[in-house]
Nucleic acid binder design. Structure first.
Length: 479
DNA sequence: TGACTATTCAC
DNA sequence: TGAATAGTC
């Protein structure tokens, strides 16, 4: 009789879950375990929005396992202690899991794997949440790629991987006691989660449904639609991927099927796949440079004179900067735990370049407020915008929030959705309310400076300031 | 996966 | 006078 533990974490799914699948093949008795140990992930323990999602994701996984006669065993405490206790209680001889890549988690897992093996417990680990194994995609000089395009080309040359695994046929019974999900106290005390609940449906079944809906509708014109925050043309799979309710292999597989079945443009498919490629690039980068969560990948930026402006930061966080596209994005984030990717770039450029606030500050706010908060992607993308990341936006690429707003929200629908106080403003002014003539303001029942803030900074001079500071960065040769 | 500015060319 | 283009940060 062989008893196997499956140590689940950010792979809260039954399908295409290699750890679960292979454990089910090998085990007479299978015990799926989730260990709540946020203290082990500090200083990057999950933020408030993530905890909300986690609560619901665990609940649905619990139900899904229950429906198949199994049970999710939830425990709290130090991971090693919990595993040790479970092994003693059950006589388990093997532990299965899918790799975690956040530096703190990866270190802990490596330590625990060594400890288990030293105690003659089998350890089986899998790369179930990535398409390519971090560390396995290298340049000819066996160094990490620092530019996306050749990285992704090298990945694609390896193929898109094996087809997804099915849900294991036989999970078997599990009679251990579990803590209730509620005992983990993941839900916020303030009634902040109403916005999240009305925006999202966590869980594996919903993730698969979301994927199929995207492939049937928006994927065909993704190349053009993806940049429009006023439309629902992105996949919105990010939180499902972040919690492993769906695997990137399943996403790839569905996208390829859609391409075969209907006339999805190759451009759109390649563009969408390359977004998964950026996700891979971020994970591989964090694998090679685990300090990248807090330290610029380009050492020139260690000397950058970031400012500390609490008032500016607060205005940005609250969506009260006076720039509609910034404020709409930040309010969308606060309300729904998510922001359109185009808008993420705009608000990040605004905070770091116009506002000169450190990218780490912005990354931390996103970490706490995003339901899709993902340490690899979040750190990587903030570094990218700030100009200190790999294959980063050059320092001179500074978004103008008004131009971006006009280009990507041409009818102002996105702005009106999130800024009701401006909803009556007609079009040229909606993107630049501070220039609205007094009589128009009066007719539209809004007074700028009273009902909606005047701009907290000057775009022109702050842009020049950022350019000057960037130009002055010392040259550090990157041997 | 920018924006700004000067310059040119067609009215 | 405005669109298109090139050069610069």
């Amino acid at each position: 009789m062989k008893t196997c533990l499956v140590w689940l974490h950010q792979d809260l799914r039954l399908s295409d879950n290699p750890a679960l699948y292979h454990a089910a093949e090998a085990a007479d008795t299978l015990i799926p375990v989730y260990i709540h140990a946020p203290q082990e992930l500090e200083p990057w323990a999950p933020g408030a929005a993530s905890r909300w999602w986690c609560h619901h994701s665990l609940s649905t996984l619990q139900q899904a396992l229950h429906a198949r006669g199994s049970r999710l065993i939830i425990r709290r405490g130090a991971s090693q202690d919990v595993l040790q206790r479970l092994i003693r209680e059950t006589g388990a001889g093997a532990v299965y899991w899918n790799h975690r890549y956040a530096p703190q988690a990866a270190r802990r897992d490596a330590h625990i794997a060594a400890w288990l093996r030293a105690h003659d417990i089998e350890v089986h680990t899998y790369h179930g949440n990535l398409l390519y194994t971090p560390g396995s995609v290298l340049t000819k000089e066996h160094k990490p790629f620092r530019v996306f395009t050749p990285f992704w080309r090298a990945c694609r040359q390896q193929g898109l991987g094996a087809p997804p695994l099915p849900v294991p046929q036989r999970l078997g019974e599990c009679r251990l006691a579990s803590e209730a999900v509620e005992a983990l106290a993941l839900l916020p005390d303030i009634p902040w989660h109403h916005g999240l609940a009305s925006s999202w449906r966590p869980g594996e079944d919903n993730a698969l449904e979301q994927l199929q809906g995207f492939c049937d509708a928006a994927l065909a014109h993704y190349d053009a639609g993806r940049d429009r925050p006023d439309r629902l043309d992105t996949s919105r799979l990010s939180p499902h991927l972040a919690f492993g309710e769906i695997s990137p292999r399943q996403v790839v597989s569905a996208v390829l099927n859609a391409f075969m079945d209907h006339a999805t443009q190759g451009d759109s498919m390649d563009r969408f796949l390359s977004e998964l490629g950026w996700r891979e690039f971020a994970y591989h980068t964090l694998h090679h440079f685990p300090y990248a969560t807090d330290t610029p990948l380009n050492p020139r930026f260690e000397a950058f004179p970031w400012r500390d402006d609490k008032a500016l930061l607060r205005a940005w966080q609250q969506g009260k900067t006076g720039f509609p596209i910034i404020d709409a994005g930040m309010r969308q984030l606060w309300h729904s735990g998510w922001m359109h990717n185009r808008v993420r770039m705009i608000v990040a450029s605004f905070l770091t370049k116009n506002g000169l606030q450190p990218w780490q500050t912005g990354a931390r706010w996103f970490w706490d407020t995003l339901v899709d908060a993902d340490l690899a992607s979040n750190s990587f993308n903030w570094q990218w915008v700030a100009g200190c990341g790999l294959d980063a936006a050059p320092y001179f690429r500074i978004f103008n929030p008004v131009r971006q707003s006009e280009r990507f929200d041409p009818h102002g629908d996105y702005l009106r959705q999130w800024l009701p106080e401006l909803a009556q403003l007609p079009l040229p002014w909606l993107h630049r309310p501070w220039l609205t003539p007094a009589d128009v303001q009066h007719a539209c029942n809004v007074r700028i400076g009273r009902d909606y803030p005047a701009p907290i900074l000057d775009l022109n001079s702050s842009r020049k300031r950022a350019l000057n500071l960037s130009r002055q960065l010392p040259c550090v040769t990157n041997a």
